[in-house]
Design a protein around this nucleic acid. Structure first.
Lengths: 206, 206
DNA sequence: CAATAAACATGACATATATCATGTTTATGA
DNA sequence: TCATAAACATGATATATGTCATGTTTATTG
């Protein structure tokens, strides 16, 4: 069975798949970070989710039902992806109730997250959403550092903007303010969360 | 097995459950419309989804994983709800791979929808989001009418506002403009979509 | 039916965020 | 290492939407 699982490596300029491509495979992140992106005809982009090792996606697990990917998947730097034919994966789930239940719980959890994000977009200000994003990434992608929590994924201001539905300029302005307030420091290559509590306070001030 | 499925009726001032309540049951809408709502400490509300007959929710199906409801469920008018103990439901799924696969597809579909909504909130203007909402409701809740499509669910401007993350006043202003442009007519009790194509054009002008 | 509350409507004004422009710093790759 | 592009930064201005205030119309209920 396991020979159906193949591994592929991608670099930051590749696409793992594009919006509209047929959903032939299930994907699992083995190493690195992958972003799920939807874009408009005019080139505006919205990043739905950053996927870390262990996450499955297709794209963004949304295509368990559906014939084509509702968004594209792009690596953030070098990544390694495991792939399995959708048909094989479904057969495996059908034969393995425990695995199916795990997937149900995983999807429930993902739906939950998506709805939390909906609420943030609908009700929070830009600075609160950015603070939420940084808190979330600190937990999922951060490693301890003498001065706080360092994010291992390389994220530009533009990447952040796309994740919270604001412009790059606004993100830069808010990040500059966060820097002045000693909440964060550094830029894409070395982003450091200096005051997690402060960011959490801002994020939940809704 | 079926004796575990109980039916309850609710009126528009009831709660089916509240945010934070333990998730003891799975719910299915039998009759009527239910809204899933998240609210902030200051009383701002965000409606995540309108559930129609056949939809399952817990709340909003997001609690397949999780001990407490991430949002509350409120009837829009009179509704009838079917309920089953969460434990029984999980056991049933474990024994019935076809049902489990159906749930996986359903959740994938719901996640997909949620992400589409995220994109709309992040990238579209208020009038486009309102047009999207009306198009969606026309398909899911509308019945043919000599002058267009009539919505059977009673929805105030405030209800709509909560669904798309804008204020009641802005919703009223946009609806007034839609009325002037002959796209819609009527108020909560008798909402009529007069020009579906026009609304679709507006909605997808992103 | 009258009394009351909810929904709808609209103006004046405030403000968060977008847009456009321009410059500096930092990273990248030949 | 130099040349080029990407990322970061910041000001000026525009604009969509929020906020507050006030009035009318439409439902609801005793």
């Amino acid at each position: 069975m396991l020979q159906e699982l193949t591994e592929t490596r991608y670099g930051k300029h590749d696409y793992i798949f594009r919006e509209g491509d047929p959903t032939e495979y299930f994907h699992i992140v083995k190493e690195g970070t992958v972003k799920c992106v939807k874009s408009t005809p005019e080139g505006k982009e919205c990043t739905l989710k950053m996927l870390m090792p262990g996450d499955l996606f297709c794209c963004d697990a949304a295509a368990f039902d559906g014939a084509s990917h509702p968004g594209s998947a792009q690596p953030m730097g070098d990544v390694s992806i495991l792939r399995m034919k959708k048909k094989s994966y479904f057969e495996m789930l059908r034969r393995n109730p425990d695995a199916a239940m795990e997937v149900i719980k995983y999807l429930g959890n993902r739906l939950n997250e998506a709805q939390e994000k909906t609420k943030d977009l609908a009700l929070d200000r830009a600075d609160q959403r950015l603070a939420s994003l940084l808190v979330d990434l600190a937990a999922r992608n951060g490693i301890a550092d003498p001065n706080g929590i360092r994010l291992t994924v390389r994220m530009t201001r533009q990447d952040m903007a796309n994740m919270i539905g604001i412009t790059t300029e606004t993100t830069i302005r808010i990040m500059s303010k966060f820097k002045r307030d000693r909440l964060v420091s550094g830029t894409a290559n070395r982003l450091l969360i200096r005051d997690l509590k402060g960011l959490k306070a801002l994020a939940s001030a809704s």
